[in-house]
Write a protein that binds this DNA or RNA. Structure first.
Length: 283
DNA sequence: TGCCAGGCCTGTC
DNA sequence: GACAGGCATGGC
């Protein structure tokens, strides 16, 4: 990777773990090479990032947006201090110290999670790669931007199906067409009240509370949005309702809206990553 | 080979 | 409101 060998910028960071942040399942276009560099496409740029030591991020990219994208401008100490006195959560935050919720582009985030429905992360990454290769703009010989809603809206159902979307193809197509036609302004969501933004997103086909909350948390700045997927649901039931047999989705939603505080979404990421790595065995 | 995956939608009770 | 079944496909 010749580019990377050329004098990367060095950014001083505290309370930050690059690998945790990029590999915890919130974004799908990052890959790590054997020499420790992470490569990803952000907007129209190809970024190369590495963390040679805990307090430093090396960035071989012309990107002033790194601090914003990685949420390096927020105090993780303040976020952790806002968490409830909850030993399970505090342990998860300790196990994955430095994990931050990053700030993604709303359409890419929404589209990726529409594709994620009942899919494994490895498959989601493949779908996102195929969509980018076939409908994104080329950046160089091997990299493409994530396709715009307009580009997806102009695709045929069969073309999207061929990107391994399966039954999700019609949802992604319809959602792209609604956004392309202006029926929903994704960039306006962040200035709405949370409940209203959630309501707007759920109008899109193939978007329920889980995908809407992922979009609001990972790309619209709603730090308390708490996506409940199969992993988190399993974790919540085991940790917080161990002896209660009848726990409905409504019960879980009510619990997560009150227990975790204003940065519930960050808490969710710690619990999510813990649940996955716990299942996979000690790392 | 069979289960299950960062769900959503519809019908039924 | 709660719950079951269907939807496509592929990793493990």
């Amino acid at each position: 990777m010749a580019l990377v060998a050329e004098m990367p910028n060095r950014i001083n960071v505290s309370d930050f773990n690059l690998a945790c942040t990029l590999e915890c399942g919130q974004a799908f276009r990052w890959s790590r090479s054997a020499d420790g560099w992470f490569e990803g496409v952000v907007g129209k740029e190809i970024w190369h990032l590495r963390q040679p030591s805990p307090g430093v991020v090396a960035a071989a990219v012309p990107a002033a947006g790194i601090t914003r994208y990685l949420s390096l401008d927020v105090s993780l100490a303040d976020i952790l201090a806002s968490f409830p006195d909850d030993p399970h959560l505090l342990q998860a935050a300790k196990d994955h110290a430095g994990l931050r919720v990053i700030r993604q582009e709303p359409w890419e985030c929404l589209a990726s999670f529409i594709a994620s429905s009942s899919k494994q992360i490895v498959q989601i990454r493949q779908i996102v790669r195929l969509l980018s290769e076939r409908f994104g703009e080329p950046i160089d010989d091997t990299h493409h931007t994530f396709p715009t809603a307009s580009a997806i809206a102009r695709a045929s159902h069969q073309q999207l199906w061929d990107c391994k979307l399966g039954f999700r193809a019609k949802n992604l197509l319809a959602a792209a067409q609604m956004i392309d036609s202006g029926k929903l302004d994704l960039n306006g969501l962040q200035s709405m009240e949370y409940d209203r933004a959630l309501e707007e997103l759920i109008k899109l086909p193939g978007v329920g509370e889980k995908i809407a909350n992922c979009t609001l948390l990972f790309s619209c700045g709603f730090n308390h949005a708490f996506p409940i997927d199969v992993w988190i649901e399993r974790s919540l039931r085991r940790i917080y309702f161990p002896r209660k047999k009848r726990v409905t989705a409504r019960d879980l939603r009510a619990f997560t809206r009150t227990h975790f505080g204003p940065y519930a979404g960050w808490a969710q990421q710690y619990l999510f990553f813990s649940e996955r790595t716990w299942k996979d065995g000690p790392s």
